[in-house]
Design a protein around this nucleic acid. Sequence first.
DNA 1: ATACGACTTAAAGCCAACTTTAGGTCAAGA
DNA 2: TCTTGACCTAAAGTTGGCTTTAAGTCGTAT
Lengths: 140, 140
Amino acid sequence: MSDLDIGEVAAQSGLPASTLRYYETKGLIHPVGRNGLRRQYRADVIQTLGLITLGRDAGFSLNEVAAMFAADGQPDINRKRLNAKADELDETIKRLSAVRDGLRCVAGCSAPSHLECPSFLRLIAAATKGRKRKSLRDYR
Amino acid sequence: MSDLDIGEVAAQSGLPASTLRYYETKGLIHPVGRNGLRRQYRADVIQTLGLITLGRDAGFSLNEVAAMFAADGQPDINRKRLNAKADELDETIKRLSAVRDGLRCVAGCSAPSHLECPSFLRLIAAATKGRKRKSLRDYR
DNA sequence: ATACGACTTAAAGCCAACTTTAGGTCAAGA
DNA sequence: TCTTGACCTAAAGTTGGCTTTAAGTCGTAT
């Protein structure tokens, strides 16, 4: 009786129903049954969805997130993996901080052209040099 | 005589030639001429490419980056825009830091199941609540 | 003179994560 | 009973940023 219609899940989670169906095709969530055609979910799907969103925010792909659920649907999260991801986030954060500082510097820079601002040039050089490293845009 | 062949630009910038041609279609760079069919670039294209990479790293889309070049190809960077982007980066950094801290907490958590760890639950709740805000995955 | 290989083009393909579309089903309220 | 509107399916479309492919061109070294 505490099962939720897909519409209620959508409302509570903030995710559109199409996304919930998509997540189902990826094996991330599973309805417990149907009411007519309508999917019904156990109430704890909300928490599962939170977990998924969290994982996505942390930079995991949906496939990576899927790999963290054991066969029974219970989260089965490898601590090593988590620490590795945290390390990755640390690097990303450092890089973004550098870029942010560069932007601020340029915004307040008094050089007539940005191309005459040494910090800006340094920043550009760094961006050029670092081409091999993981970019923010790899977080889809 | 200091013009660069596309191959040299590729080597110096670390970007494949196909990317350089792609950037050209987007109006981001322009060859100064051809040697036969081969594009030749002014040496300062390297700096321009650094600028583009920097912008991408900062979370600007290629279109946004393109909008920062005046008609003459000289960078024309609006300081307000830069500060706005820096603010955005600040938020992203804060959020990523929270996620990272959460990951570390969970990795070291002694609760038998992650779902019994209060910090983890808090983190999930936060991820659920924050659904409207810009996500990391919007940085393509 | 000729072969090589680095370039050229236009167009299609790729990726993840969804969203949209078109046409259909069905439970519940009036 | 009948309408309504929320749901259903499968398949195609979207987005951005490239990469790949196929077929062709051309400067340079031998």
